[in-house]
Amino acid sequence: MKLRVRSGDSLWYYCQLFLLPLDLVLDSNPDVDPNNLSVGTEISIPGFNTFGYKITKGDTIWKLAQSYHLNPEAILILNQTVNLNRLRIGDVINIPFRITRPIVNVGLKYDDAVLNKHLCELQRFYPFIKTRTIGKSVLGKPLQEILIGTGQKKININAAFHANEWITTPILMTFLNDYLLALTNTQNLCGIVMNPFYRSVQLSVVPMVNPDGVSLVLKGPTEEVRDSVVGINNESENFTAWKANIRGVDLNNQFPAKWEIEKERKEPKGPAPRDYPGDAPLTEPEAIAMANLVKESRFDRLIALHTQGEEFYWGYEGFEPEEASIIAKEFARVSGYKEVQYIDSHAGFKDWFIQEFRKPGFTLELGKGINPLPLSQFYDIYRKTLPIFIAALYT
């Protein structure tokens, strides 16, 4: 929601008027000097929207404010060009309202078009978040990172490395949306107040690492790639089992953590719907973008979302720090997921992160069944996973 500064206004006053934490308002207006507000400056108020109200007989600003549980000043400040002392029947004025419901719609097949729509809406209503493109897919689709918070602890959560595990994206986006709602409404999630984490944690979210592959699974191939992907897929146009990127490389087998072992033992020796680790580590733009992001950001912990199994992996070759065990036990306690320290697997994103940075890294296998997991499992998966997301903030 946008409003215009009046003489005597301050950002602190807006926080009192709309019951918002000051840091959210400050970070929603990074180009504004809070100590020198100029009359007429446009200010963003996070977590609010407006609707047009048509005046009826007997309406007054005081009555409307009472009806919508607002301070009358909240209406006055949005209607500075209207003579609110002489309202006429039929006049339309702006009424602010607090956003209390999610923007993210999880009842959809969640491809990159849906993701980008939701990201635009979240950026509009929660301008304290930062979004940026960290790279592009093989087909040139942007790989988006969302940043929330100003804390010293840096956490990355990513989803949809594997195409037919696309349900991990709406799971992560729902958490993101619920976190934003909790921040702007000063509410809790799972009984824990979220606002302190905004100041103690910087949360990085990469909701869809493999947009080309996700689109292939959900919509089928475009004419541009039809011949190549059908050939890789053994001449079948059923892509439900496809995990790889659009070039047939498994992005979670692309990292230089004993990559040569996976190259030798993986059955596919060329592009395939799954498991082919490529001709060398870090050949694919999506994997390169994620590696560069980690090198640049130096995260304190990392969580990669996959499906399925209701378990998570947290060790690699003894490189994991001691604190990883404590965090793993908390993840298992709050979710009921099984913790597994070691598995016979290499070249994964989590493996490389632990090996290179000696920081806690986790691969979460959400849900149970056959990939792609159906949307009918969404709420059960989210119910069990949400406590892990929150525990990642406080452990």
Rank of each mutant, 00 (worst) to 15 (best):
D178V: 01
M194C: 09
N94A: 13
P21D: 08
E237C: 02
R247N: 13
P211Y: 02
K109G: 04
S44L: 12
Y379G: 05
A291E: 11
P196W: 00
F125P: 00
R298D: 11
C190P: 07
G58D: 11
D9G: 09
D111L: 06
L24R: 02
D380C: 07
E320L: 06
K243P: 06
I303N: 05
T186S: 14
N49T: 13
I157H: 03
K266G: 01
N234W: 04
K57C: 03
K2A: 13
I99Q: 07
F389W: 12
A160D: 04
N158V: 05
Y68R: 00
E262W: 15
V92N: 04
C15I: 04
R247L: 03
I93G: 03
K2V: 15
G191D: 06
I327P: 08
G140M: 08
L172F: 10
T307D: 00
L84E: 11
P21V: 00
S137M: 09
K350C: 09
L189V: 05
I303H: 06
D33Q: 07
I155S: 01
L108K: 13
T184R: 10
G315F: 01
V39Y: 11
A328F: 08
K54H: 09
N195T: 11
L147E: 12
L26E: 07
G90E: 02
Y316F: 10
P46M: 06
L373M: 13
G361N: 03
K266E: 13
Y13D: 09
F255W: 08
E73V: 10
N71Y: 03
H306W: 10
I75E: 09
L218C: 11
G58R: 12
D351C: 04
R199P: 01
Q144W: 10
K109N: 13
I246K: 04
L139G: 08
A287H: 05
K258A: 15
E267N: 12
N85L: 11
E320R: 08
T50W: 03
I232Y: 00
Q355P: 07
V104L: 09
L393I: 08
I45Q: 09
L203N: 01
T363P: 01
D23L: 02
V340A: 10
F362S: 10
F51W: 13
F125W: 00
T174V: 04
P273T: 14
R265A: 02
V230K: 05
F125C: 01
S204A: 08
P102F: 09
V32N: 07
Y379P: 07
M290D: 01
I343R: 13
K63W: 02
Y382F: 14
G315S: 05
I146F: 06
R199F: 00
T186Q: 15
N158W: 00
E237L: 03
T240G: 00
D111W: 13
I157V: 14
N253F: 12
T133G: 00
N245L: 06
I45G: 14
K117R: 11
